[in-house]
Simulated scan of single mutants.
Amino acid sequence: MDDYPLLNLFWTMLWFFIWIMWLFLLFKVITDIFRSHDMNGWAKAGWLILALILPFLGVLLYVIFRGKSMGQRDMDAAQEREAAFRSYVRDAAGQPEGSASGSHVAELARLAELKDNGSLTPEEFDKAKAKLLT
């Protein structure tokens, strides 16, 4: 280890980190090529060949020419995932309208709100809750 100074170790780690980041970017570009709906098959094939044959130049050119639309596609996909997640949570947490347990939840929430603002005493809240749950 005496012939490999600490500064060389840092340089090696830096280059390794840059190489790993470039690999991530390469995979991101390749997935974006296939995900892009505004390109036809020949354009996708051309970008893919360029990214695979001349990887550094191909990735750099793709990011330069299509980076903005690549970011927009990422934002659109994230918004779609967020909307799907919110829809799933609403469907999983709530009952279909008109069901008995859905109305019980709404009634309990209304009773808790009345208790919180002082319209109901804790005893009245407990009685109403017990009546509702039986």
Rank of each mutant, 00 (worst) to 15 (best):
R81P: 00
V59Q: 07
L25D: 06
G94S: 12
I53D: 00
G67M: 07
G41D: 12
L120M: 04
P122V: 03
W22V: 01
M13A: 15
D3N: 13
F17R: 03
M21L: 12
A109G: 11
R81W: 03
R86L: 13
T134E: 14
K131A: 13
A128G: 00
L120P: 04
W42R: 07
V59W: 04
R90I: 05
L60Q: 05
W11E: 14
D116V: 00
L108R: 07
I18L: 15
M75Y: 12
S103A: 12
S101K: 12
A43C: 03
S87M: 04
G98W: 07
A92R: 13
R81Q: 14
L9T: 13
G94I: 05
K115M: 07
R86A: 10
A93G: 05
E124H: 04
F16Q: 09
L50Q: 04
P5C: 03
A43K: 10
A93E: 13
L14G: 01
E113S: 12
I30T: 14
P122Y: 01
W15L: 11
W19Q: 04
L120I: 04
R110K: 12
Q95H: 11
N117E: 07
A92E: 10
L52W: 08
M1P: 03
T121V: 00
E107T: 15
L114K: 11
L61G: 06
F17G: 06
S99I: 01
L114M: 11
F27E: 09
I33K: 03
D38E: 15
G71R: 13
L108Q: 05
L54F: 15
G98C: 05
W47D: 01
I53P: 01
S36C: 15
L48F: 12
A45W: 03
R86E: 12
T121F: 00
S99F: 03
K28Y: 13
F16P: 00
L133G: 05
Q79K: 14
K68W: 09
W22N: 09
F34N: 12
L132S: 04
P122C: 00
K129A: 09
D2H: 08
N40H: 05
R110F: 05
I49P: 05
F65D: 01
L57Y: 15
K115L: 15
D76P: 00
G98S: 06
V59T: 14
L132H: 02
E97H: 10
S36I: 04
S69T: 15
L25N: 05
K129H: 09
Q79G: 01
F125L: 01
G67T: 07
W42T: 04
I53S: 06
Q72L: 07
A92H: 09
L26Q: 12
D3M: 10
R110Y: 08
N40L: 02
I64D: 03
Y62N: 01
A109T: 15
L61Q: 12
M39H: 08
I53M: 08
R90L: 10
L111Y: 08
F125S: 01
G71I: 07
A112P: 02
L133I: 11
M75V: 09
V63C: 10
F24M: 10
E80H: 05
F85S: 10
D74K: 11
A106S: 10
A77K: 11
A109Q: 14
A92N: 09
D3I: 10
N40I: 03
D2E: 13
F125P: 01
K131F: 02
D76T: 10
S101P: 02
V105H: 07
